[in-house]
Write a protein that binds this DNA or RNA. Structure first.
Lengths: 333, 333
DNA sequence: CTGTTAGCGCTTTCAC
DNA sequence: GTGAAAGCGCTAACAG
């Protein structure tokens, strides 16, 4: 906490002998001011390095152009892209994204939501459907539009924009089955209720429906990356070699696993089929393109922002927006 | 812009028959309130889902606990980590990071700085020393602490926390020379004055000082990734094959180039030495660890935040903080 | 075209 | 222990 004491509109006004309201008129562009006065005001503003105090402005107007964006992580490849999509759309409409990162901690999410509301965010984007009860209550009572992203299957507070992770898992598994793989393992993060667990459940259920079973599922405490992909596969091999395909919870893990296979001299897809989820650039820049599901990350961000903006503009927006995924049949399966 | 109408302290107060000041006392923890009244207030707050309007609060106090963090990109591997470091430290001290992303657009940076100041940010972290004149002026007049990160060589507005990119480049080149490489190329992003260009200059100058020259330098318009690494090397090979080492502006490019070499059957480091900059996980998870410079990303973020906090606390902080880099002599050179 | 008045929701200060 | 008054910097509404 620091004291802040900047020039005010009154200071600017006094310096050129007009009233503060005249300065306000010039700065907001509302109302009429003579060209000469306007010029003087702008000159004074520039000279004094005056910066408007938006706190006062927003308090007076009871509105803000700050849009809250709460994401679980910036180190998980998909979210920077989602954010880019959000930012693009918000900027076009003159809104500022205010970004918060939870690190998948629901209590942090709760306090971020509270903080955003306390700063009068005009709308809020949050990740997934998994929240504390208090977060849900706050968002429900918020009186501002709320969009939950990434997931579809669940009970949206207002609106959601995401993909069908279960359907994606089915598409992927069916592709692998068609390729002749039969002994599956899953390595990923499915210890919680987040979207990642929906992918795991989809893989498991699809295999089960087709009369196969999932061997050696295993998981991590936090969103895993390249390193965890290597480690996971290493540990899996210690338990069993009786597998011919591994589905990873995300692309980075799959990439790490591919690196390990290279080292071990395992042929992919000959000895082992490998697939990921996401469709990150890194997977498609490999010597052999990764088999995966491409989620339209940028588009989800854009659509989420547009949904918020449309709602604010009084248009009705559908409660559930299904952004289509795409199976990338790469060379690792 | 939307109307926002939430419950106010007055509403809470009325609902239990006390004055708004009593509610304020309970919520701020300042002043004395009887245990019974306090309980009633807290119950009412909870029941009504009341969230304090910080705009009004901050306006009254002329202070805020929002810390501005302006980063150039979230898709460039190092910045999410820097942000994580910043967030860690700020949270400990009860400050909120307010994040802005410029995409390396200096005009966007300018408007983000203005926006943060207008929201009474208690301090600001910006990237590099490259700003518009107006941005510099705003930051100088801001009356709040400012920390520029990533770079060292330049003229800090107040304080900076970063690495010596030139020294890092020298260390890397000397390592490669010691390994016997002689015909160097550089592929990266050095079209601007950002830190990336300091790395390029360092490579060029070191080679020159050692009596060698840099072959076929080439660059990109934007921060390049895995894909650009492949493309860049492909284009370079079209021009010349008379090179035995390629230094890349960042790790992702180097990884992409390694993938290409695999495809082309080029032996690394036998036929070609490859090095990056950064020290990202991905480079170290490869079958052959990438030769690179590790920048302590998390630590830069932490230190930058601490510098801000110390300054706010009235302690003096050094104008330049040099965070040491580390040469990773991997298996690609 | 410009100035004055009132109020946004909160906190500090001063009464009681 | 609690209430009433004043003001943070700005803008909408009304005068002139």
């Amino acid at each position: 906490m620091t004291d802040i004491s900047r020039a005010t509109q009154k200071d600017v006004a006094r310096s050129i002998g007009v009233s503060d309201m005249t300065v306000s008129r010039v700065l907001t562009g509302r109302g009429t001011v003579s060209a000469r006065t306007r010029k003087k005001v702008l000159a004074a503003v520039e000279a004094m390095g005056y910066v408007k105090n938006r706190m006062a402005g927003s308090l007076a107007l009871s509105r803000s152009n700050q849009m809250g964006v709460i994401l679980p992580s910036m180190r998980v490849g998909i979210f920077p892209e989602v954010l880019a999509g959000i930012t693009q759309e918000l900027e076009k409409a003159g809104y500022n994204p205010v970004i918060g990162v939870t690190d998948y901690d629901l209590n942090r999410e709760e306090s971020l939501v509270e903080s955003l509301l306390s700063w009068n965010a005009a709308g809020i984007i949050v990740n997934d459907f998994v929240h504390t009860n208090r977060t849900k209550k706050l968002l429900e009572k918020a009186g501002v539009p709320v969009v939950e992203i990434m997931q579809l299957s669940g009970d949206p507070i207002r609106q959601c924009v995401g993909f069908d992770h279960s359907a994606a898992a089915h598409a992927l598994v069916d592709h692998l089955l068609a390729k002749g793989y039969r002994r599956f393992a899953f390595l990923g993060w499915h210890g919680t209720q987040f979207a990642a667990s929906a992918r795991f459940a989809g893989v498991r259920d699809c295999l089960s429906a087709r009369g196969h079973s999932l061997i050696a599922p295993s998981y991590f405490d936090a969103p895993p990356g390249v390193h965890e992909g290597r480690e996971g596969l290493t540990r899996l091999f210690e338990k069993t070699r009786d597998i011919d395909a591994v589905v990873f919870g995300n692309d980075l893990m799959a990439v790490g696993a591919l690196f390990l296979c290279d080292e071990l001299g395992l042929r992919v897809p000959g000895d082992l089929g490998i697939a990921g989820f996401g469709g990150l650039d890194i997977g498609q820049a490999l010597p052999r393109k990764l088999t995966t599901i491409r989620f339209p990350r940028l588009e989800v961000g854009q659509r989420a922002a547009r949904t918020l903006l449309n709602t604010l503009a009084g248009q009705s927006a559908p409660p559930v927006t299904d952004m289509k995924f795409e199976l990338i049949a790469g060379q690792t399966s």
